[in-house]
Design a protein around this nucleic acid. Sequence first.
DNA 1: GTCAGTGCAAACCTTTTGCACAGGT
DNA 2: ACCTGTGCAAAAGGTTTGCACTGAC
Lengths: 145, 145
Amino acid sequence: MVQERINEFAKYIEKKGLKTTQQRNDIIRTFLKSGGHLSVDDLHQKVKKVNPRVGYATVYRTLKLLSESGVAVERHFDDGHTRYEHLEPEEHHDHLICIKCGDIIEFEDKNIESLQEKVAKKHGFRVVTHNLEMYGYCKKCNGNT
Amino acid sequence: MVQERINEFAKYIEKKGLKTTQQRNDIIRTFLKSGGHLSVDDLHQKVKKVNPRVGYATVYRTLKLLSESGVAVERHFDDGHTRYEHLEPEEHHDHLICIKCGDIIEFEDKNIESLQEKVAKKHGFRVVTHNLEMYGYCKKCNGNT
DNA sequence: GTCAGTGCAAACCTTTTGCACAGGT
DNA sequence: ACCTGTGCAAAAGGTTTGCACTGAC
């Protein structure tokens, strides 16, 4: 499925008249191979192990392209670092974030989603994206505050 | 009710051994008199009309105190500006944010809240705060994208 | 050969901080 | 008097951009 995402992105790149480059490939492969919620810095560190000549700015620029193409999603949690994660198409989830250990748990709840749509409709609002984050203590950290 | 918030904050200040100053008063009164979701810059502009000698840093420092005391709540929407709003105690709401005109609609939905708690419990998670934002087109902007 | 991509460093923007002075208690 | 608060300007931290060079097509 990594290959599918790569193809999807290649198609997007081509449609926009952009070019396939070694750096972009390295960045994308590294990104797709990594799980979780990566900051730009995290990803830059990892990419540098594969190709030490890749600069910070290129990672930013490529992540922006990945977001536009729909392969990556930008997350703005409260810690001041933009993080990126990759999703399968149609996939969607929200987050539980531990304010002690920083662990991030993903969840999906169709009931919440449909109530959200209901609220939006009531206000004549057409939702494009949403995000729901809950901050608190995870199972491990709970109790030993 | 503005006065109640001011008293509440005064109590917090005193408990921490801090001081009541003219600047803090000006900032707090201006903040409480304003509705909506203010950026630091918005508030600084407004306060300067009352007291032109108030500096940017003091607004930041005071807003941080207001957040700690519970009088203000920090919001991190996707536009990269931290915004603050004031809430009555026990009040809580979430946001619908128009990505065209920037309008912010507040809503509250107890059903969503309780489903959130249920999800958290399922993961052994103790929630301290959460935020739910939906981005899209408001009634006015919908259609004329 | 052309035009987009890259690396680097500088610029940017929001937020924080150090410092000397002002002011509340 | 003491010690916190303030304004200013500088620093910090994350992100973006200008530029000259590289490399894909």
